[in-house]
Structures are given as structure tokens and as C-alpha cells.
Design a protein around this nucleic acid. Structure first.
Lengths: 229, 229
DNA sequence: TGAACCCAATCTGTCTGACAATGTTATAGC
DNA sequence: GCTATAACATTGTCAGACAGATTGGGTTCA
């Protein structure tokens, strides 16, 4: 006469090091921790109420993700890509997002297409309203698109790249007229996907990323780190 | 009257955690540590004469690189990609290596082209002789090609992908006739680069990776982990 | 004999505390 | 005001410890 347990399973608490990594990742992506900022281990311990070993393991993880840099012997800082690095990031991202769009057009099933349409609806709706809302909606659109490509390795790599340019993406919004342009470019991707035209989807996605890159990089100075303080 | 010091600078010894990571990376890529093998921390400590915290930091790094997997609570094992994952790895690798070849054809200077020709010479020379030598020569060729693309982000990602399929690459050699085929495909890439035809270089590189994938995956069973013991 | 159960050994995940080496800052002297 | 030295802070690394989880073996019971 036991009550069915259903999904009561206590979701085995993630290791502390991963919780710490998640917290710091969030803080970096949201710019609570600024590029170039020094990460003092003791402060991170207090901030996360974890011990130094756990914090250090989390930092190693973020280091491989390219979100922080370890200056041998002088501690760890939040990564601050130079303009050149930013160009390289966008170049690879364009390639991989083109690939994702192509694969989606090729492989996605009807449910995934419906989800994509829904996500696009949110983007359109939020576009003229609120910049920050549009950014969140675009993030969701990307997630759906990338998931629909059906390649987890690709997803992982694109996720990493996107986090690394998030700092720059925020800038994009401040450019006048950019939201509407951006919307048009995304509409082109959507149209190609509806037409089941993989090549066109790829091309449209590449154009979109290249435009975003151009806008973001306009704000950046050539030699010095972006957003130095 | 001081003797010029030149490049005597003692290259600040890399942190122990990185030395450990390098040792383990090597061991995994060379199959001294087999896919699926459990990595017992105490043994790694003895093997590297480092302490447990250092070993653990190194493991976190390798985890983000996809070379090991941490089974929550049950320790860390050498990653053993399933056939499906291997397909995804090759799919992304084809895309990025196509990109690298295209960029090389577009951007490489004369010195880099000369280096590439030299590396290709080694490959040709070793092709009919010794499988293992050919693999090393091909690695050098790839390194030159990828470096000549002039995008460090791309280099890093391709490097990571290549390490993750190294286990499978060894299989490729055992396929009869594969070395000669492989050589022809690479020759096509070289020709396109000499012609300064980026699109053709991309296409040839993609064909090459797709063929290699086909050969490697022939050896693998569908559901189960590759190379399970 | 075979299956379920329990216990011990092992190993991970995590913490505390410690230390030398290296930077950084502040102070004192010129 | 500038340089040199001293005091402090922080990292990189280690040793030791402990609870909890997992595993394998042995034992009991059918």
C-alpha cells in the first residue's frame, strides 16, 4: 500500500566544485565579475561558502572553458579577450552556427520546428520592447536551434563560444537600429529552415553572426583588452 | 663585460597541476591509459609524485577537455566515446578542418606554404613505409595546416577534437589500403591550396575527414562504448 | 545450491591547517 | 620626490583527516 514515488528521486546533489563553477560562470556571464578582475580565492570561498580546494577545482574548469586565465603565480583573472581574440571567436562561431542551422534544416523533426517557431515568436515580440528581454529570447532560440542540430559535441562547443562572447553581446544591443537588423537576419534563417533549404540556412546564419560581430567589434579598440575595467 | 644572457631565462616551471595534466593527457592519447579504465587518485599521485589536490585539479582540466569522465561519487574514468559520440566528433571535426583548409588557402604566407609542402613530403615518404611514422607525419601536417589558418581559437578546438579521436585514428591504419587512399585525399587538399582555391581546399579536407571517419567507425559496434577494454 | 542481505574495505568528495615562494604594499631613508 | 627595504597578502602545494558511497565478499536463509 505504498504511495507511488514517481519522480521524487532526490536529484543527487551536484558536487560542490560544480556548483561553485556554475555560480562563477553565471557571475562572469552576467558581468558581476568584470573582465580583467582578479579572483581572490579566499573571497570566492566566502562568496560560495566552499573550501579552497573546491574553489580551485572550479577555477581549473573555468580555465579550460576560456572564461578565466591563470597568470602563473599571480592568481586568476576573468578573461578579457583582445579585439583580435574576439574576431577569432566570432569567426569560429559563425562557422559552427552555420553548421547548426544547416543541420537543423536537414534533420529537425516537426516538434523541434514548432519549438523553434515559438522561440522566434518570443524574439519578435520582445524585439521592439526591451533589449534585455530580446537577448534572453534569442538565447532560447539559439538553444532550440542548436539542440535540433542533433550533435551534442557541436552544442557543447557553441555553448562555450557563446559564453565567451557574452560580454560583447551586451554591447551589441546598445547600437541603435541593431535589434531590427538582427531580427531581419534571424527571419532569413527561419525562412530557409521552413523551406528546408540547408545551404540557405547556413548562409543566413553566417551572415547573422558576421553582422553581430561587426557591430560588437565596432565598440572595441584594436590592441588593448576589451572592457579593461 | 657581461656575457650576453640570450634566452637563458629559466622558463618558470609550469605549475605541477599542468605537468600532471600533460602526463595524463599523453598517457591517454598513447593508450597507456585505456578508454573506460578507472583512474584511482592515489595511483595517479604515485605515478606523478604529486599530491592529491594537484592530481584532482589536473583531472578537472582533462574533464573539460572531454578526455576523462567523472562519474559522480564513483571516481573518474578515461572517456570511452560511444559510436554515436564518435560520429558527432568526426562531424564537427570535418567542419572545422574544412574551415582550416579554406583559411590556409586564403591566408597562409609563403613560409607557411613551404612548411606545409615539407610536412607533406614527410607524409608521402612515410606512407608506404611505416604506419606509425605516417601517423606522426600526418600530425605534423595538421599542425602546420591549422597554424597557417591564423585562428588560435580554431587551433585549440581542433586540437581538442583530434585528441578525442586519437584512440580511433589508430584503428584507421589497420585497414588495408587506407594509407594510400588517405594519401590521395591529402594530395587533393595540397593541390587546392597550391591553386589558392579556398573552396576546393575546404571540400577536399571535408572529404578526407569523412573518409577517415567511415574507416574508423567501421570497426566500432553501434551501441556499446568503443574499445571497451 | 542459489539468492538475498549485511559488513568490511576502499575510494571519493570535501575540509582544515600549514608552509614556502612570490608578489605587493607601505614605510623609511636618501 | 624617489629608491630601498621590510611587512603583509596571496598563491601553489602538501599532509592528514573524515563522512558517505560503492564494491566485493562472506554469511545466512530458503
Amino acid at each position: 500500500m505504498s504511495i507511488p514515488l514517481g519522480d521524487r528521486r532526490v536529484q543527487r546533489h551536484a558536487p560542490i566544485r560544480e556548483q561553485v563553477a556554475a555560480i562563477l560562470r553565471d557571475a562572469i556571464v552576467n558581468m558581476e565579475l568584470r573582465p580583467g578582475q582578479v579572483l581572490v580565492e579566499r573571497e570566492l570561498c566566502e562568496m560560495t561558502s566552499a573550501s579552497r580546494p573546491s574553489v580551485r577545482e572550479a577555477l581549473r574548469q573555468l580555465e579550460s572553458e576560456g572564461l578565466v586565465e591563470s597568470r602563473n603565480g599571480r592568481g586568476t583573472v576573468v578573461a578579457a579577450p583582445t579585439r583580435e581574440q574576439a574576431e577569432h571567436l566570432y569567426e569560429v562561431r559563425a562557422e559552427l552556427e552555420g553548421m547548426a542551422a544547416e543541420l537543423f534544416a536537414e534533420r529537425a523533426d516537426e516538434q523541434q520546428r514548432a519549438e523553434l517557431r515559438a522561440a522566434f515568436g518570443s524574439v519578435e515580440e520582445s524585439a521592439l520592447r526591451d533589449g534585455r528581454a530580446m537577448l534572453a529570447a534569442k538565447d532560447r532560440l539559439y538553444r532550440v536551434l542548436i539542440a535540433g542540430a542533433g550533435n551534442p559535441i557541436l552544442s557543447e562547443m557553441l555553448g562555450g563560444l557563446q559564453r565567451r562572447v557574452t560580454q560583447l553581446r551586451a554591447l551589441t544591443l546598445t547600437s541603435p537600429g541593431r535589434p531590427t537588423e538582427s531580427l531581419l537576419e534571424i527571419r532569413a534563417i527561419m525562412a530557409a529552415i521552413e523551406d528546408r533549404d540547408p545551404a540557405a540556412a547556413r548562409a543566413a546564419a553566417i551572415v547573422h553572426v558576421e553582422q553581430a560581430a561587426r557591430t560588437a567589434l565596432t565598440f572595441a579598440d584594436a590592441a588593448s583588452p576589451l572592457l579593461p575595467h
